[in-house]
Design a protein around this nucleic acid. Structure first.
Length: 299
DNA sequence: CGGCTTTGACCTGCGC
DNA sequence: GCGCAGGTCAAAGCCG
């Protein structure tokens, strides 16, 4: 069988989860302007702590569309990205790409938008953080009544017949849930490395069952285990960082990033919700980009 | 026996 | 306040 990397990718923070069952009110579109190849990083860097998630936004482009969110490929829902806390990754001091631009849909341009709503939610959360915790987890976690922290995340879509794609790390499945309006369950994985809190969710698009949506949450604080088959990570890293591949991949960079001027990394850490999503709209030659590590084929 | 998956129960957040 | 859905826990079972 064959697996293709679908190339959709986004990253964000907790609530900006891709949820095939929920439809956002607003849609965003991005322009197709210049791209700086030097801003690319490889996938292993994405997964590893050597790269921060904001860099990822520079490495990919993204294109969330509300009309596509209902489980279609490349459809993502982005939510709040603020919060000032990125799961302890306060080192996210990312150089800003100056000449990015974005064109927003009318729903974004005026009136009450998702971003506004999310901003309000963000403000509510901030006020909540500053005040009394309204609710507490009481299952061992958050024993001190701390509000649950949410790590930055990114996700990508992969055309694959296998749900759990090899990415170089070792994962332990800790849960599986049925997803509303989807016949396919969502699986929850944790990195098995001690003290590594990275999680990932794997689900299958119910509209395109061949597409696997993988959402990573958090950053690995350890090297990739040396148990990879065929040094796949190296291959992947090379592929992902080779401009020729990018150039030949038929629109790997079709979509441009939103204005980075809105991207404030650090203490402020506010940027528009869509900034953290990225998508590779063309699925054609992504096998050039994605190595066998991810595109591994099952017998 | 250790590591992993499965699965039901439980918890949290959110919308109505 | 209630119900729903997502997320997590943890016991039980499986497998090498």
């Amino acid at each position: 069988m064959t697996n293709e990397h679908k190339g959709f990718c986004y990253h964000g923070e907790w609530d900006d989860v891709y949820t095939p069952t929920s439809a956002p009110a607003a849609s965003y579109s991005t322009t197709q302007q210049g791209f700086d190849p030097s801003s690319y990083m490889n996938f292993s860097e994405c997964l590893h702590g050597s790269m921060d998630y904001n860099s990822l936004t520079r490495a990919f482009a993204f294109f969330p569309s509300s009309s596509e969110v209902e489980g279609k490929p490349g459809a993502v829902q982005v939510g709040e990205l603020g919060g000032g806390d990125v799961g302890g990754n306060s080192e996210t001091n990312v150089p800003v790409t100056p000449n990015s631009s974005v064109s927003l849909s009318s729903s974004e341009a005026g009136g009450t938008t998702d971003s506004e709503k999310l901003k309000k939610e963000h403000e509510a959360k901030e006020s909540e953080d500053g005040g009394e915790p309204s609710k507490k987890l009481n299952k061992g976690k958050n024993k001190k009544g701390e509000k649950r922290r949410r790590d930055p995340r990114f996700a990508f879509m992969t055309k694959s017949e296998v749900d759990h794609l090899e990415d170089g790390y070792r994962w332990r499945k800790y849960g599986q849930k049925a997803v509303k309006n989807s016949p396919y369950p969502r699986s929850y994985y944790r990195c098995t490395t001690q003290k590594c809190t990275v999680k990932k969710r794997v689900e299958r698009s119910f509209q395109e069952p061949s597409i696997v949506i993988t959402t990573y949450e958090g950053q690995h604080n350890h090297p990739i285990p040396a148990t990879l088959r065929g040094n796949a990570v190296t291959m992947f890293s090379h592929s992902m960082s080779t401009p020729n591949h990018l150039g030949s991949s038929q629109g790997f960079l079709v979509h441009q990033m939103p204005p980075m001027s809105n991207l404030v990394i650090g203490s402020g850490y506010t940027y528009p919700p869509y900034v953290n999503q990225c998508q590779i709209p063309d699925y054609g030659l992504l096998q050039d980009i994605i190595p066998s590590m991810i595109l591994k084929q099952e017998p």
